[in-house]
Design a protein around this nucleic acid. Structure first.
Lengths: 146, 146
DNA sequence: TTATGTGCAAACTCTTTGCATTACC
DNA sequence: GGTAATGCAAAGAGTTTGCACATAA
């Protein structure tokens, strides 16, 4: 598993390559994403960031997330209505299965599924670039409650 | 292929069952969805509705779409960032493949894919209720432009 | 030194809500 | 006649933008 320092180097290289400047804010946001155990909303990130540096602005969080997403260092996912959430791109693509009752999210990866999608896209004349698949259902615990 | 009158009957039955009241607005919005060739945003629907009845309010469009979606008569999909879009539920589930260049959307259905998703959900201990799969890529025409 | 990044506040977009009025049953 | 639906406008939530100032290179 990649360490934070490796992601940091990646970020710094990226910034240099684009002729931009490093900042403590970007590093901090990257660190929060690295340590996140779940998918974070901009607001979530903002709240965590403020604990360490109360002066930071929400706009910086949005700008940084847009930047990181455009550069491919983070991925965004949206479940249902509640806006986009972000996760660090750890190089292992996965999809999500979401419990409609309790909101629990499980990540999964299925090789066969990936191949099938590729086949479908090709069949439609498309060159597949990416995809988002969300399965919605009831988790084991919430099935009992009915 | 089901005719509009059949959807209208379905809507009226639904309204009766819930102890609610029919309205020309709801009927009009249903009709617009029925004739739509693509996925419509609330704003799209509002603009079409206004041509026929300029007095109608955007809030009514939102309220009607929420109602129809909750009752399963329409489905919503979201592609990328641009908010939810709506389509009439014609009883044939399908997924979408979207061209990142020109925005073209193709609908497809794949039995094997459906089965596989069911299997994955079960494997995670979930009871699958629904899903949304969007494939993103370049369509045949846009591949040439590169 | 100079261009980029930031914080703040205002602006914007999309959606929801409260309320008086209208329309269905 | 009574209740639900509507239109309007205002309020909310989430996100973006302009600008003066701070800061990395």
């Amino acid at each position: 598993m990649k360490e934070f320092s490796e992601y940091l180097v990646e970020l710094k290289n990226l910034i240099k390559k684009r002729g931009l400047k490093h900042s403590a804010q970007r590093e901090l946001i990257l660190k929060i994403l690295f340590h996140a155990k779940e998918h974070l909303s901009p607001e979530d990130i903002y709240n965590q960031v403020k604990k360490i540096n109360p002066a930071i602005g929400l706009a910086t969080v949005y700008r940084t997330l847009s930047f990181l997403e455009k550069e491919g260092m983070v991925d965004s996912v949206s479940f249902g209505a509640e806006g986009k959430r972000y996760e660090l791109n750890r190089g292992e693509h996965h999809d999500h299965i979401i419990c409609l009752e309790c909101g629990k999210i499980i990540e999964f990866y299925n090789e066969e599924l990936e191949r099938l999608q590729e086949k479908i896209a090709t069949g439609c004349g498309f060159k597949l670039i990416t995809h988002q698949l969300n399965l919605y259902g009831l988790c084991k615990e919430c099935q009992k409650d009915d």
